[in-house]
Design a binder for these strands. Structure first.
Length: 415
RNA sequence: GGACAGGUGGCGGAGUGGUCGAUCGCGUCGGUCUCGAAAACCGAAGUAGGUGCAAGCCUACCGUGGGUUCGAAUCCCACCCUGUCCGCCA
């Protein structure tokens, strides 16, 4: 959500910010609504003030037994105009502002799409495995990955994992969660997987992206634990966070994948349901940039310890998400697919979500909006894919990374 | 799902139609005292919007939304949430 006062004071800067996202100028239309809104407020409040004044006088007159005077004042109140259309103008303003994306951090490069993203760092070199197979080929050959069964049970974009692969998914989730809590100091949270509309609005899923969510009754299935974790501070004035608040959760995530029909239909790269370890930080404004780097490193360490080849991408203007001011994507190399694929996305949202959910802290006399950050630490389903394709053996078995062996009870998955 | 009881400022808890944004306690902040701290004492402090160079002034907010009234934290209606008991149930 944008600060109307910022737009009022800096209309050109605001429009230039939108232009970086290939959006047309909005400040003119916004300020017109704002002017009408303030005019309506002033008229309504003036009338209200006069009425309050007369009401007090009536009370006084009645107390002193001056019935005639009271009656005269009542008649005067009855003649007062009571129109208050400020709420309509406010609603119109909110509708416009809540649908506009966050302004970008100055360090974000220009560009229209992912081709303009910038490689920041690369760990390892893409392996060329002779006759490398993709994860679904490996999984089906092992008899532990069943897309047909999932389709019968639920439909497309689901998978059934069995035996050692089901256990591998569980091992990945447990190990990642342990790492983020024990080593990196995040507080483990077990949040609801369904949230109400207010919560979904707070992080920016609503109103613009409702079609991406699954709905159950009047609730929404979370598309990421970012939604409940970030909203933990919604509507709160917290103590000044000299050290960032850090939350993590391992949850299933549910996405309708509306609009991605035909993309990544084979395998379990793009599913309606997947596990993810999410990282969320709540910081002071001056701390969010450093926290963004720290959070990204917390995700990167996971990939390194799993023996994966990865690179950090700084997303360009056109590829940065709605609520984010700056995003790093982590991509892993998938030897079977011979491609880099996103496995984590770490975003600094500045105060954009904080404004939507009214999350602040107190500093001296001021109430200040917090900064919110979120990142995958990391996506479990995609980590499973990466481990399978990276550590596949010529006989079709999968070598288990050392860090996962205690959770697996074995160093290899075989038929 | 049914029956009761509740939802008030960071927390606890008063307040049942007329200067109530709201008594009080705890906690917080500033000060006095002290070498320093504690205790004690004194004082300050809600959120948002509008307006003004500013001091300030105005408006709204007592779960949410309506209603009654000149006037609502207080009365009425609906809904949401919490607690207790009952029913059902992993």
């Amino acid at each position: 959500m944008h600060d109307i006062r910022f737009i009022r004071a800096n209309p050109e800067a605001f429009d230039q910010g939108l232009a970086r996202r290939s959006m047309s100028a909005q400040s003119g239309a916004i300020l017109t609504i704002d002017a009408a809104r303030r005019d309506a407020i002033q008229r309504a409040e003036a009338a209200q003030s006069r009425r309050n004044e007369l009401s007090r006088a009536i009370g006084m007159a009645m107390k002193q037994g001056q019935a005639d005077e009271a009656a005269r004042l009542k008649a005067e109140v009855a003649g007062l105009s009571t129109v208050d259309d400020s709420a309509q103008h406010q609603a119109a303003l909110d509708a416009v502002l809540s649908a506009l994306p966050n302004l970008l951090d100055p360090s974000v490069p220009d560009g229209a799409d992912e081709t303009a993203n910038v490689v920041q760092h690369q760990h390892g070199t893409p392996a060329t495995i002779p006759d490398a197979r993709q994860h679904f080929e490996l999984g089906e050959a092992l008899g532990l990955m069943d897309f047909e069964a999932a389709a019968r049970l639920a439909g497309s974009r689901f998978v059934v994992l069995k035996g050692a692969l089901a256990r591998l998914e569980r091992a990945l989730g447990q190990w990642m969660l342990n790492t983020q809590t024990i080593q990196n100091g995040y507080t483990e949270v077990a949040p609801p997987y369904l949230v109400n509309a207010t919560t979904a609005f707070g992080t920016g899923q609503l109103p613009k992206f409702e079609e991406d969510l699954f709905k159950a009754g009047d609730k929404y299935l979370i598309p990421t634990a970012e939604v409940p974790l970030t909203n933990l501070v919604a509507d709160h004035i917290i103590p000044e966070p000299s050290e960032p608040l850090r939350f993590t959760a391992l949850t299933p995530c549910f996405r309708s994948e509306a609009g991605s029909a035909g993309r990544d239909t084979r395998g379990m790269l793009r599913q309606h349901q997947f596990q993810k370890v999410e990282l969320v930080s709540i910081t002071r404004p001056e701390d969010s940039a450093a926290e963004h780097e720290r959070m990204t490193r917390c995700a990167e360490a996971i990939l390194t310890e799993l023996g994966l080849t990865w690179r950090r991408m700084l997303l360009c203007a056109g590829d940065t998400g709605f609520a984010s001011a700056k995003t790093y994507d982590l991509e892993v190399w998938l030897p079977g697919q011979q491609a880099w694929r996103e496995i984590s996305s770490c975003s600094n949202c500045h105060d954009f979500q904080a404004r939507r959910m009214n999350a602040r802290f107190k500093r001296n006399k001021d109430t200040v909006f917090v900064h919110t950050l979120n990142g995958s630490g990391v996506a479990v389903g995609r980590a499973l894919i990466a481990v399978m394709e990276t550590h596949q053996q010529s006989d079709g078995s999968i070598a288990i990374p050392a860090v996962l062996q205690p959770f697996m009870g074995t160093d290899r998955i075989t038929r």
